[in-house]
Computed example of a mutant assay.
Amino acid sequence: MYTYQTKGTCSKQIDIELDGNIIKHVKFYGGCDGNLQAIPKLVEGMTIDEVEKRLSGISCNGRPTSCGDQLARACREAYEASK
């Protein structure tokens, strides 16, 4: 399990479990409950590259990042740390 402290979002932390480059489990802490339940269900089973392609660069409410963007960053960081 890899823990990522988010920056610039309502959520404060993301826990990620990988199986190689596949996202196995995601859990957000803080933020909009509905979205943060939906995002893990959508990305679990995807590769890190797929998550980055779909979620990187998404902004939220005028902020330069979002929970999805932070998840893409967190997945890449978790993968690099596992090498």
Rank of each mutant, 00 (worst) to 15 (best):
L18D: 02
R76G: 01
I48L: 05
K41P: 02
N61W: 10
K53C: 02
N35E: 09
Q5M: 11
K83C: 03
I22R: 12
D19W: 02
I16D: 06
Q5R: 13
L36W: 00
N61S: 14
K83W: 01
S11V: 09
C32D: 06
G20D: 15
E44T: 15
C67R: 04
Y79P: 01
S66C: 15
Y79R: 11
A74T: 03
A74D: 02
G8A: 06
S56R: 10
P64H: 02
R76C: 03
S56H: 08
Q13G: 04
K53E: 08
L55K: 08
P40Q: 11
E17S: 09
M46G: 05
G30E: 12
R54V: 13
G62N: 10
K7H: 07
A78F: 06
N21G: 03
Q70I: 02
C10H: 12
S66N: 13
T65S: 12
I14Y: 00
V26R: 12
T3I: 07
I16W: 09
E44F: 08
Q5K: 15
K12D: 07
K27Y: 00
I22D: 04
G68P: 12
E80H: 10
M46H: 14
E50V: 04
V26P: 05
G57E: 12
G68F: 11
S59H: 08
G57M: 12
K83A: 06
D69L: 02
C32I: 03
F28C: 13
S11G: 14
S59R: 14
A38L: 09
I23D: 01
A81D: 03
Q70S: 08
C67Q: 04
G62E: 14
K41D: 02
C75D: 05
T6F: 06
G8W: 13
E77V: 02
E77Y: 01
L71P: 13
Q37H: 11
L71W: 13
G68H: 04
G34K: 01
C32P: 05
E77A: 15
C10T: 11
P40R: 12
G45K: 04
